[in-house]
Design a binder for these strands. Structure first.
Lengths: 301, 301
DNA sequence: CAAACCGCTGCAAAAATTGCATCACACTAA
DNA sequence: TTAGTGTGATGCAATTTTTGCAGCGGTTTG
């Protein structure tokens, strides 16, 4: 859609903070870009950018305009989806901001399932923590956010909350593998590997141990769930994870045991979108699919 | 805003149903207009218009796009208002679709009051019946609708309902002028002038007399409230009107007497906007003003 | 003080838009 | 049937707009 070019350009300038740099990334001459901005400002009667010695910054009017621009760009995508929809072929792009736990099993499975039915739809998966996820929704980088506890975002419209009981991941030979459910104290008496990030599982554990004599003394810390999980199996130490991040069902190479909820309360994975936004068709349908997948497998609210 | 030109053009073509005719009204060559449309269609991959022997008509995709176009145009107005707002000067345009009764006193008073505070704001007042008012909201011709009973519009977002007791308008010498409140039967025993339209006051009266022995036999009918009112005073016959359509307070040349509510129930004037739309600043503020004016003078819900 | 960026402007080249004349088609009226 | 009228589409030239280059004036940085 050609008529949105100037708007896209403005967005790029706002993001990069410099006309010349934005021009480079847009594969256009900085002069042309500069003139487009001047034209819009003349049209509007107000400067969109403040000129600083090292570049530009959005003015108050620019902030308002940028909000409008993002709405328009997003809405145009949505309209394109609607139109593609009624001409039979389903096209579109779905962009997801999610936490790490969804990466290894859940999203690959769901996306390939969706793409089997609608090969024309493309996907973008971006690993984001909660605040970054919210920013991604606001800037329209992402259509859907899938984030773990705790959530308190003002611009997030909650669509579903999925209850996730913390589970210990063990090598089959690990002594704890014999028991059915584990107490946190038992786990912590063995060498343990934990995620670093102050979010998600680690956040729940910190909360759980704050008022007890238990101490979190991980022998391995990492911000990669993938690494923790592989390492736990290799070295036969314990790690903790939510079910969504683990292979579905039982596998011979890996044992999963729930942690008693008296020790660690269940966490929640939240599905959400930008408040007030109407999602493009593809995103909306995919969202419906994963929500029903969640509802089928886990307790949801 | 230049980038919306094509969208405005498409809207004009959709309205006029012919590229050539739209081109004329847009003061542009039909070739250029035609090509703009072709360009958008190529861009979108789908025809926006069906080509008929006598012109064009929106396709299904076109309907979707038009909806989007109207949203965008409206939103751009809103953004302009917001931006003008923070640069100090209040500019903007407020377009109102309303029933006749608001024309003689209420709107002139309110608009001039508002314009005294904000001379930069311009107004458009369009007389519309209920269905037309709804269409005006949808097409963004109007920002606000002020309509009389009965209302059952799916796209209207109700902001306020103003109770209006039906009143008889009399010459001071009229025999009924001596009484404080009137029964409908008394009024109908004198020559009476009534509005024609099946809406508003007439609708209430028809409902009221349907199940009684009373009969509406107006000696004068007109779709102009102005005429009815002038004529009633001239020929000294009775006419019925809602308070909003009458001069505020008592005047020596005219007597107002309420009709007993046992005979005719109170009507309602509704203030509304398009569902889900965020009004431009000027419209939003003016709306707040008239709503408080209503609330001050009449019983509102 | 020089170098590195920055946004901005004059000017010419390039690209897009527009207008004119005209075509093909469908309907209407004689 | 036939001539006439109104429709959207297209080739081509004129016009307008956009773009890119070179260079200016300013500020920060080393």
């Amino acid at each position: 859609m050609r008529h949105l070019t100037s708007l896209r350009y403005i967005e790029a300038v706002a993001k990069s903070g410099s006309i010349r740099r934005a021009a480079e990334s847009l594969a256009i001459n900085s002069t042309a870009l500069n003139r487009r901005i001047l034209a819009v400002e003349a049209d509007l009667g107000v400067p969109i950018f403040e000129r600083l010695p090292r570049g530009v910054r959005l003015s108050a009017a620019g902030e308002i305009l940028l909000q409008h621009i993002r709405d328009q760009l997003g809405d145009m995508d949505r309209v394109k989806g609607l139109i593609a929809d009624l001409s039979g072929e389903r096209r579109g792009h779905v962009s997801i901001a999610c936490s790490q736990a969804l990466l290894p099993y859940f999203l690959p499975e769901q996306i390939s399932l969706y793409r089997r039915a609608h090969p024309g739809v493309t996907f973008g998966v971006h690993v984001r923590d909660r605040d970054e996820a919210e920013q991604s929704l606001i800037s329209r980088e992402a259509d859907i956010a899938l984030v773990f506890e705790p959530v308190r975002m003002s611009d997030l419209e909650l669509l579903l909350a999925v209850r996730q009981r913390i589970e210990a991941v063990l090598h089959p030979d690990h002594p704890l593998a014999a028991k059915k459910t584990l107490r946190l104290r038992e786990c912590l008496s063995f060498p343990i590997a934990l995620p670093t990030a102050p979010y998600g599982v680690r956040h729940l554990l910190e909360n759980a141990t704050r008022r007890s004599s238990l101490k979190l003394t991980p022998v391995v810390e990492s911000d990669s769930f993938e690494f923790l999980y592989r390492h736990a199996l290799e070295e036969k130490i314990v790690t903790l994870q939510i079910p969504l991040g683990l292979p579905p069902g039982d596998t011979p190479a890996l044992v999963r045991r729930s942690i008693d909820t008296r020790d660690v309360p269940d966490g929640m994975v939240y599905v959400g979108q930008l408040k007030g936004r109407i999602l493009p068709v593809a995103a909306s349908r995919f969202c419906a699919q994963i929500m029903s997948a969640f509802a089928e497998r886990y307790e949801c609210i």
